[in-house]
Design a binder for these strands. Structure first.
Lengths: 125, 125
DNA sequence: TCCTTGTTTAGACATCCGTCTAGGCAGAGA
DNA sequence: TCTCTGCCTAGACGGATGTCTAAACAAGGA
């Protein structure tokens, strides 16, 4: 596992949205990351993995945290993995997942806008 | 406009994913924001609005930046607005949109994870 | 009042997505 | 080798989503 179909190192910018408009190419690439997190189950999976001391979690623990079937959890993990947000490795019988901090940071920085980015009259309106 | 169907001020945490796992409720709420950004057209719209000096953009300018029809752009703007990422106001003939920095910051902070959040052997693997 | 322009709404349609069941593969142990 | 457990893949199915055309609404000007 740890399938090396790693997403091509994207040239997606790491600058906030407020600095300059995205190209269509960057938008397509970055949207994949947000889309993967745009589902409550996947966002919880990501948080369960990210918040785990030691950095990695066995699939069996993740499955136990939901009322969904194994295949459904497996599907969501695959979506997160194909988006580059997590990676995994089989060790013996079990498969462990962990987050890819660089990918999360890229998306975080994109949304890191200064507090006063809206027109003043709009704020007070 | 500036429709006051503003999303109920959510109690969604502003702490990074690495600090603790999300509740199901928070995950549902936060996922809406990411889902709205999970489309390349919407992400470009958001960046066009966010990067505009002065903070607001007329719909007509946004429509011109795409090969999509007006109604389609209007639909995407509505999705972004219902997610709480942008807001708008009609002034005369034109409608202006601007971003909601607080919402973007919340999502940014959620993804703001330390660089070393994955197991060491995994990083070097 | 009527026309023109800018924007949104309504509804249709093809495609995508989340979930399930059934079945297959991988590793461990008897 | 057989079996058991953990996990993934394949395929089906209903509901959500992105796009369009047609039509309605809003504001300004003749």
């Amino acid at each position: 596992m740890s399938r090396q179909e790693l997403p091509i190192l994207d040239a997606s910018c790491c600058t906030p949205l407020t600095s300059e408009a995205l190209t269509e190419k960057s938008a397509v690439d970055l949207a994949k990351g947000f889309k993967a997190m745009g589902d409550a189950v996947r966002l919880r999976l990501l948080s369960l993995i990210a918040s785990r001391k030691g950095g990695e979690v066995c699939v069996c623990e993740l499955t136990d945290a939901f009322t969904l079937t194994g295949p459904t959890i497996s599907h969501h993990l695959r979506v997160l993995r194909e988006a580059g947000l997590i990676d995994c490795q089989r060790r013996g019988t079990w498969v462990y997942y962990w987050i890819v901090p660089a990918k999360l940071s890229t998306l975080s920085q994109l949304l890191d806008v200064p507090a006063a980015s809206a027109p003043l009259d709009a704020v007070s309106a």
